[in-house]
Amino acid sequence: MSSPIEQQTGSHTGVHVESPALLLTVFGGLMVLTFLTVWVSGLDLGRMNDVTALGIATLKAGLVIWYFMHVRHSTILTKLAILTATFFVVLLFGITLADYLTRGWLGVLGR
């Protein structure tokens, strides 16, 4: 799949030009999700409030990354970079939580 611009410049890895219609559609989706997250936050769903808020935020982030940041046309290396960042943030959170959530498990006073 090569756009006219690629043929013009003899580019191999690709200059992918997004159509304005697609970008506008994504923007519309993001607006709907923003409205949705504000609306849901007013309902009392208990713990599910956090889950929906973060779920919607992740979805929005995914849209921005995939379309606005051109990741869908990027090399495997870019995708790997994103996975690496995610992995190490999860590591930072997970291992720190492994301390906080296990305080007192072994019955040592205060630890």
Binding site: D99, Y100, T102, L106, G110, R111
Partner: peptide, 8 residues
């Protein structure tokens, strides 16, 4: 003062 479990 981290948890003994985590320390292990």
């Amino acid at each position: 003062g981290q948890s003994v479990y985590a320390a292990t």
